[in-house]
Design a binder for these strands. Structure first.
Lengths: 192, 192
DNA sequence: ACTACTCTTAGGACCTAGTCATATATTCAA
DNA sequence: TTGAATATATGACTAGGTCCTAAGAGTAGT
């Protein structure tokens, strides 16, 4: 019965995915096999023991606290022509998506676009003043989003940037950003 | 030396808060006392052992994922009337701001507003389809942003949400979100 | 100086949820 | 029926604790 083992292991995998807190004993009970069999299964599937499992989950949790954006830019900038155009890449991973649907949360796509709009500005500082955005297609985990920004207009203190994001040539996001720029003569130096 | 013990225990507490992964042995080394002393300290402070600690952290993580609201949302929701209004609070900290200027990056304010717009929807799933946003005032680290969302219109499959964010009564952000909603008749149940 | 007290350290028995290695039993398919 | 795959059993060992008892160290009051 080759199928029996395979079946059990598949089930074991998903079972532990949605409830990592089960001991080998619990699992043995559930699948009506011996503890040793469960251990062998885990070994074959390279699933760590309970303690390591929950340690992993806990570590992730702690990382998530920092989450959203330690770096200055969301996504990796691969091309940058100041005051002209810029391109960045964002690999959508599980932490970017809704757990239920697997669809990327809007604010990550926005964050990528917004970061790019900031980066493209050739000035000391750039802030988003206004934006009109459109999410045209859902993005799943595992997909790579390429955002392309272009300057569409420069007036004194104000710059318009258009950002279009694609997954495989397909438009998933577009936005029109109005950026505010200053030349570092802002109200600064307020130590308190 | 009554202070010595108290001091150590206080330190122990904060140490474990920011790094729950330390064993008693690690802690004993750090404080140059015996393991037994650490155990006594934990006992007095009612701090559980390593395994229970990380189990707690991990459980929280998993709950958050399941709960859909708390951690899926940027900012803490303090009021929620489904399909009516919602309020969330975001404390802007150093990781949210540009290191140069100390001004909050737009996408965090957007993320808070977007999250709130998602949370307010009384349906299985909600996605942002379109948004027009405006950053009306810069937000510094240390400030508390209160976002208020109101439903402004519901049609079948589409809901308009208005979000206004304030720091001390002062408007810092406003946005008009068009949300897409579905009722969980998604492709699910694929055992393989 | 002696006692009283808190604090600290030490030791042993036990626990859980494993590890690894070895041996035996069961099952199935050729 | 025999051999390979699969399953189970057993024993020795581990980390990171628990709980309990006992004893030493430091300090204060009388």
């Amino acid at each position: 019965m080759k199928r029996k083992k395979k079946e059990r292991q598949d089930l074991l995998k998903v079972t532990l995915e949605e409830n990592p807190f089960m001991t080998d004993e619990d699992l043995a009970d559930q699948f009506s096999v011996s503890i040793q069999t469960i251990r062998l299964d885990r070994l074959e599937l390279a699933i760590p023991e309970l303690r390591e499992r929950i340690k992993g989950v806990a570590k992730k949790q702690l990382d998530d606290v920092k989450a959203l954006s330690p770096e200055e830019v969301i996504g990796e900038i691969v091309d940058l022509q100041l005051d002209e155009r810029a391109i960045s890449i964002l690999d959508v991973r599980t932490e970017h998506v809704f757990t239920r649907s697997g669809i990327a949360r809007g604010h990550h796509l926005f964050a990528q676009a917004n970061s790019l709009a900031v980066a493209i500005i050739d000035d000391e500082m750039a802030l988003t003043q206004k934006a009109t955005i459109r999410f045209t297609r859902q993005v799943q985990a595992g997909e790579r989003v390429i955002a392309k920004a272009n300057i569409t207009g420069i007036e004194k203190g104000r710059t318009s940037v258009e950002v279009k994001s694609y997954v495989d040539q397909e438009l998933v996001f577009s936005g029109e950003f109005v950026m505010f720029r200053t030349t570092e003569r802002e109200t600064r130096r307020r130590e308190s």
